[in-house]
Design a protein around this nucleic acid. Structure first.
Lengths: 359, 359
DNA sequence: GCGTTTTCCGAAAGCGGTTTCGGAATTTGT
DNA sequence: ACAAATTCCGAAACCGCTTTCGGAAAACGC
């Protein structure tokens, strides 16, 4: 439309050169004399040259834009997380001249459609997705398309792919260890739907933690909830009405943990002193909850940067199977992890009594 | 690179037509027989045709991508806000085939540079910015560039521009009214640096609220802080060491209010019963703070949608001065607004006594 | 001092669309 | 049945940049 910008042609005319020469000068071809390269660069600066993105893309065939597919149903509470991720992604991409595009989808089907569109219209040159399912159709699709992609999380797949993940299994195992160390024996797990890989692996870690501590697995103590505060609240309400309620609860995410805290307080109990709670993510607002939430913190700022770097690795021709990174989460202890009140007397736990006391 | 996609040329050859004919058929030119248009459409579907974005952009000159410039220093706590905004923006843009690009900047200077780049390289066809300064250099820049843009917030400008905003002045005025109605007379304001337009207008609303309630303006009761929980905490600490501390505190954002709560609790006081606190934004995590935070809620989900629609209005040729919308915020009362303890006895307020009591 | 390399640049063909222009084929007018 | 008006499509230029190819000019060799 407007864009009164200097093109290579303008530079060429200004200098009495051919456009092809200008192009090669700017791209560092060896068959251009240093003197003319300098002239070209000077003129470019002087005339305010801006390479036309579309033109370059059209002739090279690659788009210097990466797409981030937003996880479908993101509660407003879990979003601080992806905002940080976006920042790391965007800033790191920019260092090599790439831009970041975000795409929201309306359904799993729509998501596949978007991926196909983004790649096949040439809108983007790479894609990053989050929260893969245990068996995620997006992965074989992108492999079929030949689109460079990195997954934030792991997944089952026949062919190897690039991924960045935090070891949730390990994290939940050590959470259990931590709680057992505090004298807890009845430890519950509030998880999310198991089609998500992260949900499964965190549950696995929980089970594994029980096992290595010689605790038996009690299905009653495992609740599956929506990834939301409301989901955590409902699940915890269930747990608290058990005949033998847990003395500690592991939440699959901090967002869910918020609901856990709410439900515990609603039952007239104190998160921490009465029932320990450990979340996962280490979100900043955990310091402001009532009481401040103990959580497994993952290195979030790092994630965006690394994922962007992995995108470049792929672009530079790295084999996807060599482009993987597994980080660890670390316990940040705030106020909701505490010694079990009666480590050896599992009978002191009628919630209703407790409630009446407090009323 | 790969992209085994069908081009218009492929369709043309498949049908024995010229590419120009195919193009005009797809774009609804009137000089194409309906019969051949149908054949073209059928072939397009059959061959899996995908228009090449770059090619179209190159020849039409317009890019169907809108950029959202991320506010420079976004605390991780304020980010739920923009994530919701992005969602509304992205989904609404997509309805007309547009995509959303996000750009993080490292400085004010860099931000101007990015805007210039995004527009002049043809990467985007419109830009939306947030949190304008009272006098914001980005606005005249975009006006000079001729780039369609909408501002999330208002600003002083010679030429009119498109904006969407929530009336912060009105909101803080009614917050003051609300508190006065609860018997408060010493009401403090924890604001943010006044180069931001929103900071100024909220302060103005605060002052206006004082005036219409016949309260005098006491500069001691106004603190300027970083837009963060830490900033709010420091500012509140100052307020509490005053000889005559406030009985109520207005925070410029919910993020800041978190720090206000922390500082109040740290002083051994109870937010709500002892000192009322009202935030601004109505963020969801306000229900999980200690205690739950009363706040002025703005219609956030609506914002992204409307801003995207305004972008299209501009693209469709609307005069920027006609593309504006002012929304109102509404009080959502949770647990931090309460009647003043001693409405008519401003002498009961030595914080140190209170602290000692609690110690 | 004349052939042979090197060095350096111009010319041109795309990339995949859009849009203008002109003309063949068909329809209309009388 | 012949000129005029429509209808419909092909041809070609262009958007800005990349890249291959070939050749002129300069440097080299002996």
């Amino acid at each position: 439309m407007s864009k009164g910008q200097a093109s290579q042609k303008a530079i060429a005319e200004h200098l009495g050169l051919a456009v092809g020469t200008v192009s090669r000068a700017m791209n560092g071809y060896p068959d251009i004399a240093k003197s003319t390269r300098d002239r070209v660069m000077a003129a470019a600066r002087e005339l305010g040259y801006r390479p036309n993105n579309a033109a370059r893309r059209l002739s090279t065939g690659v788009s210097e834009v990466a797409a981030y597919i937003m996880p479908e149903q993101t509660s407003s509470l879990s979003e601080p997380f992806i905002a940080e991720l976006l920042k790391g992604l965007g800033e790191t991409l920019r260092k090599r001249g790439w831009d970041l595009m975000v795409t929201h989808t309306t359904s799993a089907q729509d998501e596949l459609e978007q991926i196909d569109r983004l790649w096949n219209t040439g809108a983007v040159g790479a894609i990053v997705i989050s929260r893969p399912l245990k068996k995620d159709p997006r992965i074989p699709l992108m492999q079929k398309l030949g689109c460079p992609f990195v997954v934030h999380g792991r997944s089952a797949s026949e062919a190897p792919f690039a991924w960045y993940d935090v070891d949730g299994q390990d994290a939940f195992m050590s959470s259990v260890n931590h709680l057992v160390g505090l004298g807890h024996r009845r430890i519950a797990f509030v998880g999310s739907p198991l089609q998500y890989e992260f949900a499964q692996s965190r549950l696995d870690g929980y089970k594994q933690g029980l096992k290595i501590n010689g605790l038996s697995y009690d299905p009653e103590l495992v609740q599956i909830a929506d990834i939301s505060d409301a989901g955590g609240e409902r699940a915890t309400h269930q747990l608290l009405t058990l005949e033998a309620p847990p003395t500690a609860i592991l939440a699959v995410t901090d967002t869910v943990a918020l609901g856990v805290l709410t439900a515990i307080r609603a039952a007239g109990l104190r998160p921490g002193p009465d029932i320990s709670v450990i979340g996962y993510d280490g979100l900043q607002f955990g310091v402001h909850t009532n009481p401040p939430l103990t959580s497994m913190e993952q290195p979030r700022a790092h994630a965006g940067r690394r994922i962007a770097e992995m995108v470049f690795n792929l672009i530079d021709g790295a084999d996807p199977k060599d482009v993987t990174e597994l980080q660890r989460a670390h316990l940040v202890s705030r106020a909701t992890d505490a010694p079990a009140k009666h480590p050896n007397k599992p009978e002191i736990n009628s919630v209703r009594e407790k409630q009446n006391d407090t009323d």
